[in-house]
Design a protein around this nucleic acid. Sequence first.
DNA 1: GCCTCGGAAGTC
DNA 2: CTGGGACTTCCGAGGC
Length: 874
Amino acid sequence: MSWQEELCIISGDNRSWEQNNISKTVIELWCRSKSGHSVLLLVNGLRPYLEIFDPNTNSDSIKPTLSLDKLDEIKELHGQPERIGNKLFEGEMKPFWRLYIKDTRYVRNVRERLMKIGWGVTSADILFVQRLLLDCDLGPHIKVKGNILWAGDRAPENAKNNDNTDTKIAESKIKDVGGTGIYPLDMIVSCEYQDLERAKPFATPFVIFSFDLETSIATNEILCAAAVIERNKERTEYRFRGNENSILEGLTKLIRHEDPDIITGYNIDNFDLPRMDERAKVLARKNKMTEVSLNGWGRVPAIESEYKRLLPSRKQNRVWRIPGRIPLDAWWQARQTLRPQRESLRYVSQLLWPNNEEMHKLDIDSSQMDKEWADRPDEVMEYCVRDTIIPIDILNQLQSIGRKEALASVAMTTVDIAATATTSWWIDSLVIRLADRSNIAIPMTKSGPRRRNQIAGGYVHEVEAGMRPWITVLDFKSMYPSIMISNNICSTTLVRNDNEISKSDNISPVTGTRYISNEIRKGLVPQLLNHLMTSRDAHKIAFNKAKITGNEEQAFLQDQLQYAVKILMNSFYGVFASSFYRFTDPKLGASITEWARYNIKEIIRQLEEEGRDVVYSDTDSIFVRSPVDLAAPTSKPEVGTDELKKWEVAKQTTLDFGEELALRFSKEGAELEFETALSAFFSHGAKKRYVGRVIWPREELLIRGYEVRRTDSFELLRDTMKTMFELILDNESKKSVDMTKRIIDEVKAKKINPSKLVISRSCKGRWDSKKNQWSFDMYTNENLPYIRAAKERIRRGLSFTPGMKVGYIVTDAKSSPMDVEPWLVDEIGADPPDYDSQYYAARLAKALGRITEAFNWSENELLSGSRQQTLFDF
DNA sequence: GCCTCGGAAGTC
DNA sequence: CTGGGACTTCCGAGGC
């Protein structure tokens, strides 16, 4: 039965099969349709290939030293080598051949053998699913015409007929096109690669599954589990208790029946998924099909030959893979986007929903789980259920899934690549696509030593200590991408030989690296970046248009897309400055930053020559004193006063000045934008540390680098410093000193709530399976406070995961190393530890004193009346 | 007690 | 299998 609809590709894989003794490869695409049902697409017709060239030839003088005849010996090849014309490889055009391979499994082996004979090999390390997207120029959103082989209960009614609802018939049809059986999706559809077409991006109604396990601390056994499914914005809760077997079986049946696309939970990567794996292996006692019934979450038929793909797995402690689905840990998402001071589910939900008591109430002591489970299992069960709901709320709140889908759309990859892979994958997707269409060969990802000479980075201007009134802040728009575009920086335009030098070359200002002018040949990457810049502008325009017409859904989508383009553009530099990327050369990264430093220093030089005061500059920003009357107030005066008029004049002068500078210094490929206006700027004299009172485009306090933003500081220091900055910028320095002293006195008198004194730092660690305990041997010194706090957490039966932020209180800094206690109030409601008041007072005084010193407040000026003490000396 | 150094984390 | 560099701060250790 033929069928047509729009789908979003969640993930893909491929498998080899045989038809009439001819080896074939089918691509499996796990999709969710625009209308909400899940579809497995079996795509046939594409054959794996790689490309080769003779390194000793070039297009002018063909002196082949290698013979194609020798290739006959390679039995894994399919058909004869196909001459595909000349391609550019490291600056030279060479004749290329394409070799089709019988099976993707042989690619690695064939590749190595060809290289041994002396052939250059390209396009030989690209996943076959990616190959489909590249060759057919598809993104995640596709339109497909195909045949329905199987239609399950949730399939649309008009998709069903007698054949495709009969398991036996369907199964044999699926095997006829290379599938392995009835995959646990709503529909199974077969097509040829020509039947796929690119579709406009849409917001896919993904089905989300969130789960949580409660486990025994004594035995690691699973005591109970809960899960919640979100489908079409409706949630259904499930509770599992009883023996461990039935709990695991229940979860697995639910997954296979509900068929979610995304698997979430809090800390599933480091806790729940490894625990499932461990317990299923214990219970299955090496019986594969038993293990599958307990933990077979993979989106493939539950048959023994699929054993490997049925079970969640992770390689070398990296991300988990569940074939066909996307594991998306709410903990990791929260950590990346919120950068919370502490990372417990309780803390994060308090941060996101401060007024919803229900969400972060603490009724179970998880460090006493065995006792709690014995005493009041019903409460534990409800606690478990709540901990499955909040992760979905977190993902929704952070818009995590929509953002991954948007990124997939602009990078033209599957959603799982956007969600779990790294920047180089996204960039590969765009770069290889264009290279294939421009006769540029695709070198393999570089392996070998990672370390090499560092390339110089951005320029940071020296900053003087003190206050500066009325500042204009200018920013280069997308600096690194712009530089790559305007100077045509790309591995395809890098001049490698002296005999290729041309007068029109772009020459980088320090190292003299040359790039072919874009009039002669446009670089691959500059072309892509140019296109991305244009498309971001288009999404922004579409966003504004949708806002005006009140189409909220469209506005949301366009905003996600423009943001994804921004993320993607900013990823280019990093990949091209790295040592491993296939299309790179250390010269490229060096040239980019070289031009950046040159551009910004040149503007600073000109401004200073004109007598302007350049207060600060970092990489792509410049802070300049605006020509404002010194008598103008820097803090906003009361409405209706003469002072306010002066302030308004000063503001206008600064805005005009900013516009003027932006216009004057912008040039092709280096657009300077007037970004913000400050009525006051302050730094104590350290680079990357400053505060500013922003008065345009909105009024706010801008704080960079200071402890206010750091998680290894503590709340009291963050709050006090922030208040201090507010007072300082309002010229209330006296008040700020008084306030600081008062706070320090309160600390000394132990009048401070200890929750304001929690310091938190992330801590590494690894599970030593030989010794069956946590190991911290990656540290040269294990006496660091956060490592000792982590060890204490573990000793007290609390969860520890490598890389987690560990909160602690300093209880005695006089002993060496200092005594600390972990902060367990959020998690188990433990009593707060007794803090070392001297230590905290000293740290406050030190950090805050750095700032007040910048005001040249001498010791005498800081005398605190009766006791004749200074801020620093107590 | 003061200083310097290196390791580590954090931020831009 | 793998984005990068510049810069600041905190802490422990060791020397005197």
